[in-house]
Design a protein around this nucleic acid. Structure first.
Lengths: 345, 345
DNA sequence: CCCTACAATTGACACGTGTAAAAAATTCCG
DNA sequence: CGGAATTTTTTACACGTGTCAATTGTAGGG
């Protein structure tokens, strides 16, 4: 409690009669010090309050033991789950995760990247902000550090590792499901904040054409601020329903948050989307947002395997930062989505 | 792009012909250097790639310019909104925010606090994990740093600044609203993960007694893991409804996530909660979770002023860390909630 | 042109810890 | 108990930048 505070290893050394370098080694790994010294240090530390200075320790070490992570939004449970998976995986491996959020501002995203470089993080994992990002910073990071791109992949980027959902597969299976058990779906797009938006749209179109159906995409232009997905879904469908359109359609939403807005629009117009109502309105989403089982009706969707994406990204990063000469090939891992059939479609 | 990378100020000094200390001052604040030097440095930096080492700069500075923030959960939009507010406010003031998440583990929470101490952060803001937290660490932080506790306040803690919602007021107004426009509400508690859980419960009881109604609290024991609030609300009400109970009651949920589970239970049993159905089922929440406008029906709730809580916390922290001798009194700011009447109650 | 006043720059040391090489202590064995 | 082998500790320097006192440069006035 009121243990005297000691600020430097030197002081500690004087206080408990063990040389400073020995203390240094003790704090890095007690196994590098003799049993008797460990005992003496342990006893000493019980009497005083000392923590090695974070900056001084990291400055000279070859490895800082830190991994930098950048996510684009904070108020989205998809990214928080991703972040959680990454943090737990990294912690498991003994690394400290430093998180920065872009707050949907490319400027902030760029500054965060520079901060990581100046901190000598051992590696970086970035979920890109999207359209407005300065791609240059990803290349900068990739050139200097073990680096993995997450979730959303800018087309023109080469030689950068990537881990994310296989949207052709994921959007494919839900498109196929909707076609199989009801009328061919309309695609309710989301504002094109990132590259996934377009990937899903294209995957939908391709699958529809494969089945010989006419793809129909609505809601491509943003009405609300980019990341207000629910408001977007609500506004687009409210407009459609008001004009008497799509009242008995299958609607595939670009993500679950758009779908939640879509469900609201349906309820507002007295419509009850559902798989069991033959010929009626059906609404489906993408991502398996944690709230999907609790919507009215529970949302049919295709789940992204967030835990695996996070784990694979960390694994790949660790692999890269352990191998000194990284003459390896570009690593791209696309993970399958899983169909989650509930009641809404 | 392929600008030669320079690692130290010394090298940079040699490369562009300006002494190292001058460079040091330039990077801290260009205004501390003569106009001509600024020009020369600017031109030099365009030709090479250099960023001052984060650790080396922070090690000696009196102030590290960093604020540590600990939140208990990541997968909860309430905390992410709080965090967002804090980050933006701190950024505004020129501080870097380092965020750590407890992941509902007191051990991690404690380690995060130690990390902040070893990093010499200028101040710390902590939203406590709750029941299982080691209160000792808050006192440790408070003794060493400008420190503000957020959102949830452990009773036995003295002399610690606090910013959060006034739950007596917030729970009071929604209890009062429910009593006024319908039958007196039952309180659907949440697992007592933190101190707010109990505070809201008690505020409900007090208000009910004040009105001369019999308070009824259900769902106090956790069925699912502590933080699975939706599952909790669903399970408790599903059980009640199955027994034919509470079918026409007013139900005040301890928070919106519990309420979302409650709405699901209602829908599952074919019930349609709503303010307009006289004598019928009504469901209300607490927090104004971002999805409330999109639930079916839209959830009546009482909003926590997240933006203000974050801003006030940061303001108070800055005030403390600017005033050297903090002989000031304990600062406790309770912020009013705002009633958000929608359709569910 | 010289001298003063003041701004800008620089030299020298400090920060707290890592680390390799040298010195000391310990262990082991006959 | 002596000496080699091994472990442990210490000495000495390094890391990259902050900061103050001392020095240099600059402008203005006589």
């Amino acid at each position: 409690m009121t243990k005297p505070k000691i600020h430097t290893m030197e002081e500690l050394s004087a206080a408990i009669g063990v040389s400073r370098p020995t203390l240094s080694r003790y704090f890095q790994d007690p196994a590098k010090v003799s049993r008797s010294s460990i005992e003496r240090i342990r006893r000493g530390l019980e009497k005083v309050d000392y923590t090695p200075n974070f900056f001084a320790t990291r400055m000279n070490r070859k490895s800082t033991g830190m991994i930098g992570v950048i996510i684009p939004y904070l108020n989205d449970l998809f990214f928080t789950r991703l972040l959680e998976a990454i943090e737990l995986a990294a912690m498991e491996a003994g690394y400290t995760v430093i998180t920065q959020c872009s707050h949907s501002d490319p400027e902030i995203e760029s500054r965060a990247a520079e901060t990581f470089l100046s901190m000598n993080v051992d590696g970086a994992i970035v979920a890109p902000l999207g359209n407005h990002s300065d791609l240059h910073i990803y290349e900068r990071l990739n050139a200097r550090l073990p680096f993995v791109l997450l979730d959303s992949r800018p087309e023109p980027l080469n030689d950068v590792d990537f881990v994310g959902t296989d949207h052709v597969q994921s959007t494919g299976i839900i498109t196929e499901y909707l076609c199989r058990v009801g009328s061919p779906p309309v695609f309710l797009a989301m504002p094109r904040v990132n590259f996934n938006a377009l990937e899903r749209e294209n995957a939908y179109i391709a699958r529809m054409e494969e089945f010989g159906f006419e793809p129909v995409v609505i809601g491509t232009e943003a009405i609300h601020p980019d990341w207000h997905f629910e408001a977007h879904g609500l506004a687009v469908l409210d407009d459609q329903f008001s004009r008497g359109r799509l009242l008995e359609s299958s609607i595939l939403c670009a993500n679950d948050r758009v779908a939640i807005g879509a469900l609201r629009a349906a309820a507002k117009h007295g419509l009850e989307p559902g798989a069991r109502r033959k010929g009626g309105l059906r609404i489906a989403g993408h991502d398996d947002y944690p709230l999907c089982p609790y919507t009215t009706p529970p949302l049919t969707t295709v789940g992204q395997n967030v835990a695996m994406i996070g784990q694979v990204a960390v694994d790949r990063l660790l692999e890269k930062l352990r191998a000194e000469n990284n003459a390896e090939d570009q690593f791209i891992k696309l993970i399958d989505g899983e169909l989650k059939v509930r009641e809404s479609a």
